[in-house]
């Protein structure tokens, strides 16, 4: 493998890992706090992508400055995630807290199916193109390799998100409350933490992160029905590799999957189709609960 190819694998792997991390972080946050495997996370991604496509389309068609378009894309999608998260949590999820985890999965799956139809009602069956932010960002040449500035921005966005998350969890009051709930919900409640409020806030933040993932990816893909399904499968794989509920795990899982996939496309493209799942199977064979699974307290 030449130096250029190795560099290409690194860049491609980081870009793909950034995408996976942004999508998976919300999923793993909700699972870590609420122990809900949220299938509707794919819908948050879809709504974020469609919302961004609509906002960007209107903004760029008016010939306004490019920078505002990026901001609008992100803010609009996150606002959509906030509203959707609140509706889902207040309207459905709070009625099933405490039920069996399988029931929770089925409830979120039902919500996912309903929201897929809501997308058709709102945006119709056609696909949307949101290429303006991608093309407006330009590119840089590194040797023979041309790298999109938008992709580099994606890596930076994922890094900033990881840093904010780490800081918020370790150094803010809410982060400490969250850590207490993650560690033991009942004990946290006994110490006076309003677990219901923590749940609501966590679910909404998770929804906003899912929508943010959709908004950031919208300029690179054709925004169309079914994108949420693809994403949720990939996000589950990343979260399973890293360990359910672990943010460090999501980061590690995204990096492993991203680099492995990029290396496969460059070196052995024939096996690209299943490399992600092969990596997942391999990790789970060695560590059945993922790489960064949190130690579980034994209750007597």
């Amino acid at each position: 493998m030449s130096v250029l190819s190795a560099f290409a694998v690194l860049i491609d792997g980081l870009v793909y890992a950034a995408y996976l991390f942004i999508v998976a972080i919300g999923l793993t946050l909700i699972f870590g706090v609420m122990k809900i495997l949220n299938v509707a996370h794919g819908s948050f991604f879809t709504f974020g992508a469609y919302g961004a496509a609509s906002a960007v389309g209107i903004y760029f068609n008016r010939g306004l400055p490019d920078a505002g378009g990026y901001l609008l894309m992100v803010l609009f999608a996150m606002a959509l995630g906030l509203v959707l998260g609140l509706i889902l949590e207040r309207g459905i999820m709070r009625w099933v807290y405490g039920r069996d985890e399988v029931v929770m999965v089925l409830v979120t799956y039902a919500a996912f199916l309903i929201l897929e139809d809501v997308v058709i009602l709102v945006w119709g069956p056609g696909s949307y193109a949101t290429y303006q932010p991608l093309l407006a960002a330009g590119n840089i040449e590194i040797g023979e390799l041309v790298v999109s500035n938008y992709d580099l921005g994606l890596i930076a966005a994922a890094a900033v998100l990881a840093a904010i998350y780490y800081w918020a969890l370790k150094f803010t009051r809410y982060g400490r409350l969250l850590t207490a709930v993650i560690f033991d919900r009942e004990t946290a409640a006994a110490f006076g933490i309003n677990v219901r409020v923590v749940y609501t806030v966590t679910f909404v933040i998770g929804a906003m992160l899912g929508a943010l993932g959709g908004a950031i990816m919208a300029p690179k893909i054709a925004v169309t029905l079914g994108i949420g399904v693809e994403v949720i499968v990939l996000a589950f794989a990343v979260v399973a590799i890293g360990g359910m509920g672990s943010i460090e795990g999501a980061l590690a899982g995204a990096l492993i999957v991203g680099i492995c996939r990029a290396a496969t496309v460059h070196l052995v493209p024939q096996v690209e189709l299943f490399v992600i799942y092969a990596v997942m199977a391999l990790v789970l064979m060695i560590r059945p609960y993922g790489l960064f699974v949190r130690a579980q307290p034994r209750k007597i």
Partner: peptide, 21 residues
Amino acid sequence: KVLFPKLFAGEYGAEISTLLT
């Protein structure tokens, strides 16, 4: 180069790098 990404993959960063190199 012979590339066969899966149907509706959506993201082709690695494939484009492969072609560029």
